[in-house]
Design a protein around this nucleic acid. Structure first.
Length: 493
RNA sequence: GCCCCUAUCGUCUAGCCUGGUCUAGGACACAGGCCUUUCAAGCCUGGUACAUGGGUUCAAAUCCCGUUAGGGGCACCA
C-alpha cells in the first residue's frame, strides 16, 4: 500500500509550532516510507478566513524543509486541494447519505438549538446534544429549498470503535455521539464531513493528527461506515504543552514558526527539536542530535509517546547552540548577515571590504551564540560607536583610579607601537605589560575590555580589538583616559 | 458535570509489550570544581523520579483493578 499522509490546516493565521510538530511526524513517516505528503487547506469556515494564511503556512513548511508532493500550489491527481473549491463534491456525497438514510435535513433554528441546550443544562444533562427534533420527520417534510442543515443520523444504540495505531481500540458509546451537522446552512461542509470525504478521495492511508481530534473520530468512523468506505489508519499523537501544562499558546511566548525564525533559530535545529518532542530512538540509543537524514533513518512512528510533552525553550536553545557550533564558519557568516543588517550594524548589501571583518568576528562568537539574533548584542560595539564608559566602571579590580589610568596610558603606548595590529601580535606585549605593572592579566584586560566595548562581558578581547581596528581602539582608550583623569581630579587626589 | 486519553528526575526521555540484569540510564536546566583575560564552549563531580492504594507473582517501574492528578473533547470552529 502506498503511504499517503496529509497536513490539513485551516488558514486562520500563523502556523503553530505544536501543529508543526505533528507535521514533522507526518513528513518523516511519508518520506521514510517512500510515500506522499499532501498539503490540503481546510477553509470551510468562511468567518475565520485569513487572507495571507495559506502563503504563510507554505513558507513555514518550506523554511523547515518539509516539502509536499501535492497541494494547492502544485496541484496533484486528487485536486483541488482547497476545500472551498470542492463544494459540489461534498454536496454530492451528502446527498448519497440522505438517500441511504444516514443523514437527515434539519431546519431547527439556532435559537431553538440554543434553547434546547439551555434546558438540558438546567435539567442537569451531562452532555448537551441535539434532541433529534427533525431526525424522524417524514421524507420531504423539509424542502431542500428552505434554509436547513444536514445532520448525521448516528445510531442510537451500540458503540463505535476507533482503532488507533498507538493506543489500540478506543470505544465510544453511540448514545453519547451527537447528530453532527455535516452540511451547514450556507452550503459549506463542516470539518467532519469534509475531512472524511477528502481523506477518502485523496486516498489518505494514515491520519496522523493531534490528540484533540480523538473524541470526534467516532463520528468519522460512522461516516466511513455510512459511505461503506475503509477508514485510514488513525494515529493520534499527543499535544504540545507550555510550561504550565496547558496547551501551548501565544501567552507562552514564541509559538509560530515565524517567531522562531526571526529569533535566529536554525530550521535544522527546530526540526531536530520538534522530532524529539514525544519521540525518542530508545533501545540504548542516546543520541539527541539528529540531522534530517538521521531522523529519516531512525524515526519510528510507532515509538511516539502517548503523554503530552512540555515545550522546553531551554532545550531548544541548547540544540540550536550545538548546530551553530557545528556549522562551517562561512555558512554561519552567511546566516548571520541578515541579523546584523536588520539591526542596522551592517549595510545592505554588505560592502565587499567588510567581509574580512565579518569573517574575523565569526570565530569570536560562534560558541557564544544560542540564537543567531544574539549576534547583535554580542558584537554591536565592534560596528558602532560606543558610549564612553563611566569612569567607575574603568577602575580595575583591586586597583585605584590612578593605577587604572596608568594602565590605560601604558596600553595606548603598547598598541601604538605595534607593527601589526592583530590579535597574535598584541597579546605577548600586553601580557608583558601586565607583568611590568605588577598586575594580573585579568586586571589589565578587563580595563581594556570595558574601555573598548563598554561591556563587562564581551567576546575575546584581542580578536575584538583587531576587528575594531587600531584607530578606533586608540580613540576609545583615550576617551577612557579622559574619563579616569576627570574622576581623579574630581576626587581629592 | 459527562466522555476519552495519559501518568519515570523541574523538563525531554530510556526502560514497560517479552516481569528478575533497575540500589532506574541519558539529555536539558540547576549546583560545585577544573580550564581561563570576561562570558561562553569544553571537561569532571553532585542532587533530584518509577503519583497512590490494592492485587497477581518466589519476584513489579514493568501485568490487572481502584483512586488521585494532569490533559483533551462535549459548536451551523477546525
Amino acid at each position: 500500500m502506498t503511504i499517503r499522509v496529509r497536513f490539513a490546516p485551516s488558514p486562520t493565521g500563523n502556523p503553530h509550532i505544536g501543529n508543526i510538530r505533528t507535521v514533522v511526524f507526518n513528513w518523516l513517516f511519508a518520506r521514510q516510507n517512500n510515500g506522499k505528503f499532501i498539503l490540503r487547506i481546510e477553509d470551510t469556515d468562511r468567518s475565520r478566513y485569513t487572507p495571507n494564511a495559506v502563503q504563510i503556512i507554505e513558507e513555514s513548511l518550506r523554511w523547515l524543509g518539509l516539502d509536499w508532493d501535492e497541494g494547492p500550489d502544485i496541484g496533484g491527481p486528487y485536486g483541488p486541494y482547497t476545500q472551498s473549491k470542492r463544494l459540489p463534491l461534498y454536496q454530492e456525497k451528502v446527498n448519497e447519505l440522505l438517500e441511504k438514510g444516514w443523514a437527515y435535513r434539519c431546519n431547527c433554528t439556532p435559537e431553538r438549538l440554543k434553547a434546547v441546550k439551555e434546558m438540558q443544562r438546567a435539567a442537569g444533562v451531562d452532555t448537551p446534544m441535539y434532541d433529534g427534533h427533525c431526525r424522524d420527520l417524514p421524507p420531504g417534510a423539509i424542502s431542500p429549498d428552505e434554509p436547513h442543515v444536514i445532520r448525521l443520523k448516528v445510531p442510537r444504540e451500540g458503540e463505535t470503535i476507533v482503532p488507533d495505531m498507538l493506543r489500540g481500540a478506543v470505544t465510544f458509546e453511540n448514545q453519547r455521539i451527537d447528530d453532527q451537522i455535516l452540511l451547514k446552512s450556507d452550503g459549506f461542509p463542516t470539518y467532519h464531513l469534509a475531512v472524511v470525504v477528502d481523506d477518502h478521495l485523496m486516498q489518505i492511508s494514515h491520519i496522523i493528527r493531534a490528540d484533540e481530534w480523538l473524541s470526534s473520530t467516532p463520528k468519522h468512523v460512522i461516516l466511513y461506515q455510512a459511505f461503506d468506505w475503509t477508514p485510514p489508519t488513525f494515529v493520534h499523537v499527543p499535544l504540545v504543552m507550555g510550561k504550565d501544562g496547558q496547551k501551548l499558546s501565544k501567552r507562552h511566548g514564541a509559538v509560530s514558526v515565524a517567531d522562531f525564525r526571526q529569533q535566529g533559530y536554525l530550521p535544522e535545529a527546530v526540526l531536530n527539536f520538534l522530532a524529539m518532542l514525544g519521540w525518542a530512538p530508545g533501545e540504548g540509543d542516546e543520541r539527541e542530535i539528529f540531522t534530517r537524514e538521521e531522523l529519516l533513518a531512525t524515526f519510528e512512528l510507532s515509538r511516539v509517546k502517548l503523554s503530552s510533552a512540555v515545550f522546553s525553550y531551554d532545550k531548544l536553545d541548547w540544540i540550536n547552540g550545538v548546530y551553530i557550533r557545528n556549522m562551517e564558519k562561512s555558512e554561519l557568516l552567511k546566516r548571520l548577515v541578515p541579523f546584523w543588517q536588520a539591526a542596522g550594524l551592517v549595510p545592505s548589501p554588505v560592502p565587499s571590504e567588510m567581509f574580512e571583518t565579518l569573517a574575523q568576528v565569526v570565530p569570536l562568537i560562534q560558541e557564544r551564540l544560542k540564537r543567531l539574533k544574539d549576534v547583535v548584542e554580542l558584537t554591536d560595539f565592534i560596528f558602532t560607536e560606543i558610549e564612553t564608559p563611566p569612569a567607575e566602571k574603568l577602575v580595575g579590580k583591586k586597583m585605584t583610579p590612578l593605577e587604572s589610568l596608568e594602565a590605560v596610558q601604558a596600553m595606548q603606548t603598547v598598541l601604538s607601537n605595534l607593527v601589526n595590529f592583530d590579535a597574535a601580535t598584541m597579546e605577548p606585549p600586553l601580557r608583558q605589560l601586565a607583568q611590568d605593572l605588577g598586575l594580573k592579566a585579568g586586571q589589565l584586560f578587563n580595563i581594556m575590555r570595558v574601555a573598548t566595548s563598554n561591556k563587562r562581558v564581551a567576546p575575546p578581547l584581542f580578536g575584538s580589538i583587531e576587528a575594531i581596528g587600531r584607530k578606533r581602539t586608540l580613540q576609545r582608550l583615550s576617551r577612557a583616559e579622559e574619563a579616569l583623569t576627570q574622576l581623579i581630579a574630581s576626587e581629592k587626589y
